[in-house]
């Protein structure tokens, strides 16, 4: 690979392929200085960091959109061919997943909202697919990318906080939307001000507490998923640093364990998102 020392190897594997804007007069990794601000691929971690907010992780976006399209294509295909006859193959799989998600939603979501169940399905399957990329050995796809001239390539979108926060922000916006819609601005404000202590003197305290609780929801959602996936990825990379003949003794159990983690994290993310949305629908 492109790295010589273990630390470089790990850093290299944890760096996203970043496309972003470098300011004028910036000295690049190879020593050249650019005259005007330009959009370009980052050639080092430092460059990617210096691009700041005006940058995009091409690998994260590419893989997540690709997997989203795979998910929707598969499910749309099954949906088109769905019939009341005996289901076979793909349709069985799709219906099992749908039923599973329906079960989650039925258990925790008691209001009526036709958006929630498909939302949960999208989250569950999409996150599951993104997490599953982890089971591909860490060097395979980056090697291919490297052969194609791309310095960095991190394939698992859920090991990128942008990926997980992107989804949880979507959930957060929906929580706000439904809180306002169902409870009304007044009702929502009242809930934030008068819980957990129903006394006017404690309104500021309640507000701080409730706003924190509100904001912590998307943060915890995203960080939980990101943390689990990132830590698992780091361990996979560390295992990949071991001598070849011993790797499998650790890689196999860790990968088998991750079949559980991949599914579990997708499940937890989905369930908690549905729980939060359910709370947003409760009108006191």
């Amino acid at each position: 690979m492109a790295a010589d020392t273990p630390v470089e190897y790990i850093k290299h594997h944890l760096q996203n392929l970043t496309y972003g804007k470098l300011p004028a007069g910036y000295e690049r990794a190879d020593g050249t200085v650019i005259q005007e601000s330009t959009w370009t691929m980052a050639r080092s971690g430092q460059e990617a960091m210096d691009m700041g907010f005006m940058a995009i992780h091409v690998d994260t976006m590419g893989w997540s959109i690709f997997l989203g399209v795979v998910f929707l294509t598969l499910f749309r295909f099954a949906a088109k061919r769905a019939s009341t006859d005996t289901p076979t193959g793909l349709q069985n799989l799709v219906e099992m997943t749908v039923e599973f998600v329906q079960g989650i939603v039925r258990d925790v979501f008691h209001a009526r909202n036709p958006i929630i169940a498909p939302l949960a399905l999208t989250m569950f399957v999409w996150i599951f697919l993104m997490n599953s990329l982890k089971l591909i050995p860490v060097d395979y796809i980056p090697s291919v990318a490297h052969a194609m001239g791309l310095d960095y390539f991190k394939i698992v979108p859920t090991t990128d906080p942008n990926g997980t926060f992107g989804i949880s922000i979507g959930v957060f916006l929906l929580i706000l939307f439904y809180s306002f819609k169902i409870k009304g601005p007044g009702g929502f404000a009242k809930e934030l001000s008068f819980t957990p202590f129903n006394h006017w003197a404690l309104i500021p305290f309640n507000l701080v507490l409730e706003l924190l609780a509100l904001i912590i929801k998307p943060v915890s959602l995203a960080l939980r998923l990101f943390g689990n996936m990132y830590a698992g990825e780091v361990v996979f990379i560390l295992i990949a640093l071991l001598p070849l003949w011993i790797q499998w003794t650790l890689h196999v159990p860790w990968a088998i364990f991750h079949i559980l983690v991949v599914t579990l994290q997708a499940f937890i993310f989905t369930t908690l998102a549905v729980v939060y949305l359910s709370a947003a629908h409760e009108d006191h």
Binding site: M51, G52, I56, G68, N162, F165, G166, I167, G170
Partner: peptide, 15 residues
């Protein structure tokens, strides 16, 4: 590990 436009892109894709 930098927070950047990917965040917004991901949200849009999700939506």
């Amino acid at each position: 590990m930098n927070i950047n436009l990917t965040l917004i892109g991901q949200s849009i894709a999700f939506a």
